[in-house]
Design a protein around this nucleic acid. Structure first.
Lengths: 227, 227
DNA sequence: AATTTTCAAACTGTCGACACTCGACAGTCG
DNA sequence: CGACTGTCGAGTGTCGACAGTTTGAAAATT
């Protein structure tokens, strides 16, 4: 017990770029910037009390995540979504998860099943006493597990990108989850299909589950933005 | 006809960032940098004759495309691929294209069919008298059409990302396409299935077509990198 | 009044500079 | 001889500054 550094977590040297990116992301998800609005590098730099360089890089990072768009010599603007684009995102997400479930059905281990069951329980818990944001996050976490357990890491990366965009739109809508418990329960058939190693049943359960969400969210988004 | 700029292509005010990103991309695809090697911002800036700022941003751009990776305080490194990751890319690509074909089978127009036929003809032509790079590009163009015609723009974006990575790996292998004409011909069944509006046949044709490519490319890549 | 022109403020693209950090190498001490 | 320490060079993170561009509004013209 002399000079061992055992037990110390490596302090993460979070540079300004990531900090700014996180703060910007949070602000965007909280809806503090209207879609399409111009974001001035100089203004943001002043607000954050830093120079423009890290702000630029953070903005570029958010651009690559599809939350901002840039025009040469004009700067960065908050990404605007229309309902069709959101529909595309859901469509693609379903495509990915169907594939993940197909893969997963053939290789589900006991650990994976336990993790998914546990996550389902967490979802039910936050459905009782959790915020809407928590409910969304735990929901996403379940679906992310499906992707992770599929074994295709590249698929997970795309899923994460899509989730960023879905979160962005969902938070733009405002309230959601009128009945979080019912939503949580509709994940059960997916897990059940996996337990029986049935890819077809898994796909069907997913089709239903995500299809419902897609219809609701896109519809609400369309009303909220068009009307 | 006084001061109209009609007819002139709008001068691409291509900023340094994009120019540098393109040059870096080209250099990477030509294999001028070994995977895993460190790229010094200062050195690149000197080489390009610019300051470090645009180099940094270009590097971040390539990082978002998965061609570079960065470590805090260490800088940028050329992305290393292993065969498993490449396998994931092909797996995901197949997933996307299956979906695209499924969507496309239900909405193929005469224009789309003509475009695909034309592209197939182009492929056969470069198979006779074209370079390997051309053959790859025209091949990719065909598959990209499938994605575009599916109507899901988000899917196209992911497809493009995956193509970047596949190109990266394929160029790393060296030669490919021993029989480009035969490869071109194996696209015919896909188009044929679309003509008969049969999503199942389309998927099957794709499964075969891409599966063969996946096996060959991943296998060659494994030999080339492991051995 | 409507439209064009002018003009200044704000902003972006790019640059050079400085501080801090990381990795290597040599030197020191046990 | 081996492990630790101090130093040095290279490189990244961040900053402030300058030049050219865009924007929006005031001013001028029709």
């Amino acid at each position: 017990m002399t000079t061992t550094t055992q037990g110390f977590a490596t302090i993460q040297q979070r540079d300004l770029v990531n900090q700014i990116a996180d703060m910007l992301t949070e602000a965007l998800l909280k809806g503090e910037f209207s879609p399409g609005v111009h974001l001035s590098e100089a203004q943001l730099a002043r607000d954050f009390g830093v120079s423009r360089a890290p702000v630029r890089e953070a903005a570029r990072l958010l651009e690559s995540r599809g939350m901002l768009v840039s025009q040469p010599r004009r700067g960065f603007f908050v990404r605007t979504f229309n309902a069709d684009e959101l529909d595309d995102v859901y469509d693609l997400r379903l495509c990915l998860e169907r594939h993940a479930v197909r893969l997963l059905a053939g290789k589900l281990t006991a650990e994976m099943e336990a993790a998914l069951s546990h996550q389902l329980e967490t979802m039910r818990q936050v459905a009782r006493d959790g915020t809407a944001v928590q409910q969304i996050e735990e929901d996403v976490a379940f679906h992310r597990m499906l992707c992770e357990f599929s074994g295709n890491q590249r698929l997970v990366r795309v899923f994460d990108e899509l989730c960023h965009e879905m979160r962005f739109c969902i938070l733009l809508i405002g309230q959601l989850y009128d009945d979080a418990m019912r939503v949580a329960d509709t994940h059960e058939p997916i897990l059940e299909a996996l337990r029986t190693r049935s890819p077809d049943a898994g796909e069907a359960a997913l089709d239903y589950h995500i299809g419902v969400a897609q219809q609701r969210v896109v519809e609400m988004f369309r009303e909220r933005t068009q009307g």
